[in-house]
Design a binder for these strands. Structure first.
Length: 595
RNA sequence: GGCCCCGUAGUUCAACGGAUAGAAUAAGGGUUUCCUAAACCUUAGAUACAGGUUCGAUUCCUGUCGGGGCUACCA
């Protein structure tokens, strides 16, 4: 790539001109800002110490050297300490010709070496997926696809939290008040049905606590002694003992939830190569903890509970087994990590989990290392920010949770309304328009979420429907459809633009800009993979679409009489459309042929 | 209390320590006998505050103020 050429050219120049080898990091290449002439800019300030000359003079000398030395660099100008270099049309044009028909442009073939295992989604089986899961799911899926496109061997896995006291709560509530209702009998998604009983439990439990407090009991005691919670704990014990009736109920209700999740996952377009269940890993976790106890890495308290002392790391003690021997969240994660390591021997284990769990993952890593697992070094927590509502954090108790299915429904409905208001495509069949609305609604949602830097807390306002204009998914989808429409017309006019080999020289500024942006795509994917940030890909797609729309507005294609120009512009358009499709594909967003 | 993260136009988001802080929306003004106006052009609008480091700070350091998270025998 051209940046590397300039970099190594500069390095050589520094050596030849000033007789010194400079640190690579001092050579800073960036894209020249629009308001200046040139394509790439070298910042010379860091090099002054070596050149022992003023910024202008150093830049001037380097500029002359680079123009002489690199055929790709044809001109330069110096403004203050900035050396602006102009890249030759020949270079850009050959890049264009070489890559325009490549189906894999920008991507590498996914690797086959030691995998990067990406865990994401990680739902509980006691309630439906909500907006928080949506960000998690989209991020995890997209990061995995970006890693693959960057040449890594990424594997997507899910970890279902299918056991524990919270699951027993919904089971108990259903047993008590469910009257044998099923998703079929109620015509409701299984995850929703189970979630309802979880809520019912919580309400009844709260009532019991209130009653006990009224009768003079302390709040904490009441929470422990309410009959419902005692019953739930007993159920958990029965579950751990493998009691048939409890296990059957558990299996039945979990399978309802999985059916519901599958519907949501499918619609969202996300998938997993492997699904882990905590019910299958917690025993391994317990075993590892007991091993650690034997080795003396962990310690036991008088009541029988097992702990890890983290004071040498400046942290507290961490409970790993309760006095009754049952496991906690951390115990399960220890088991899951070990199992996953045994399964894949990954070069890296990425956990896509919200930043509220930073502490948990710090501790997990430390404990694994204490247990002698060297590979714990490869655990990486991709901690993304929360999705907040205007009134703050989502709270299920206050009913402010945005349900994932409802959200998708609303987006698709907005897509329908918007399209109808614009009066487009009366010739679409019901099926075609249904598919289009789905594509646009989900495109708007996915882009809205993925364009934000994963690390940042983001805001979602359910009262305002997401925009379809401006920096949005539909804008980019529209650009793609628009190009496809022109290409269809060109084809029907028998214009052969794909085999055009003549030159596009001299490049108009908009054409040059487009090619420069396209030229960046492979690096953008690498960068997005390094930073685990789909936002970089989203921003790229937007920039490309925006630049294309300006080009589209300014330059006619089908009406262009110069056949060479016409063919070249059509080929450039197709290149843009394909690249948009690839970039959006990495975000899990489909692009339509017409809209 | 301790630890961690975050404060950028009215609003939602950008900006490897680099040039005059970019977009989008919302507000004002324009462009359709022309390949899709979900577009394009245009006007106005922001780095919480105070120090420090640096040739250069939205970015790094310190403090103040403001917001969020963690600090569970929940996950």
């Amino acid at each position: 790539m051209i940046e590397h050429l300039i970099e190594s050219g500069t390095s050589k120049a520094m050596h030849d001109l000033y007789g010194a080898t400079v640190d690579e990091r001092l050579i800073q290449i960036q894209k020249t800002r629009q308001e200046f002439e040139g394509d790439y800019t070298l910042v010379v300030f860091p090099l002054l110490r070596t050149s022992r000359k003023g910024p202008e003079q150093t830049a001037d000398e380097l500029g002359k050297y680079l123009v002489d030395f690199l055929p790709e660099v044809v001109d330069f100008n110096v403004i203050k300490g900035f050396l602006n270099l102009t890249v030759s049309d020949v270079y850009l044009h050959s890049f264009f010709v070489e890559n325009k028909n490549s189906a894999y442009f920008g991507r590498k073939k996914a690797g086959t070496d030691e995998p990067v295992v990406v865990e994401y989604s990680a739902p509980n089986t006691n309630k439906p997926l909500h907006l928080g899961h949506v960000r998690n799911n989209l991020l995890g899926w997209s990061v995995s696809e970006i890693l693959k496109a960057s040449g890594r061997n990424a594997v997507k896995v899910n970890l279902v939290n299918d056991r524990g006291i919270h699951i027993c709560k919904s089971m108990l509530a259903w047993q008590k008040w469910g009257q044998g209702k099923t998703p079929e009998s109620e015509a409701i998604k299984g995850d929703k049905l189970v979630g309802d009983y979880y809520v019912k439990f919580d309400k009844a439990y709260k009532k019991e606590i209130a009653k006990l407090v009224e009768s003079g009991m302390g709040k904490d005691d009441a929470a422990l002694q309410a009959p419902l919670i005692i019953e739930a704990k007993e159920m958990l014990k029965k579950w751990e003992q493998g009691e048939t009736e409890t296990r059957d109920l558990w299996q039945k209700m979990n399978s309802w939830v999985y059916d519901g999740f599958d519907v949501t996952y499918n619609r969202m377009g996300i998938d997993f190569e492997k699904v882990y269940y905590e019910s299958e890993t917690y025993l391994l976790g317990k075993k590892l903890v007991n091993d650690g106890l034997e080795k003396g890495v962990l310690f036991q308290k008088e009541d029988g509970s097992v702990w890890c002392d983290l004071s040498d790391e400046g942290l507290d003690e961490k409970l790993l087994l309760r006095p009754d021997g049952t496991s906690v969240y951390m115990t399960q994660d220890i088991g899951t990590a070990q199992l996953r390591y045994d399964d894949y021997h990954p070069s890296e284990m990425i956990y896509v989990v919200g930043n509220e769990q930073n502490y948990h993952f710090d501790v997990l890593k430390i404990i694994m290392k204490k247990l002698g697992k060297e590979w714990a070094e490869n655990i990486h927590h991709l901690n993304y920010g929360m999705v907040e509502l205007p009134e703050g954090k989502m709270k299920s108790r206050e009913g402010t949770v945005v349900d994932a299915d409802d959200l998708m429904d609303e987006m698709v409905e907005t897509a329908r309304k918007t399209t109808e208001e614009l009066g487009k495509f009366g010739d679409f069949s019901a099926e075609e328009s249904g598919l289009l609305y789905e594509m646009l609604g989900l495109g708007a949602l996915k882009y809205f979420i993925l364009k934000v830097d994963p690390k940042r807390t983001m805001l979602f306002n359910p009262k305002e429907s997401l925009d379809f204009n401006g920096n949005t998914g539909p804008f980019i989808q529209y650009t793609h459809a628009r190009i496809k429409s022109v290409l269809r017309k060109a084809e029907s006019q028998k214009i052969d633009f794909r085999n055009e080999s003549k030159n596009l020289n001299p490049l108009q500024s908009k054409e040059k800009n487009l090619i420069k942006i396209l030229h960046d795509f492979p690096q953008t994917i690498q960068q997005a993979a390094e930073n685990l940030s789909p936002a970089l890909v989203a921003n790229f797609a937007y920039e490309l679409a925006k630049e294309y729309n300006q080009f589209y507005h300014e330059f006619p294609m089908l009406k262009e009489t110069d056949e060479t120009l016409r063919a070249s512009r059509l080929a450039l358009s197709e290149f843009v459309a394909n690249t948009i499709k690839t970039a959006m594909g990495l975000l899990g967003i489909a692009v339509p042929e017409r809209m």
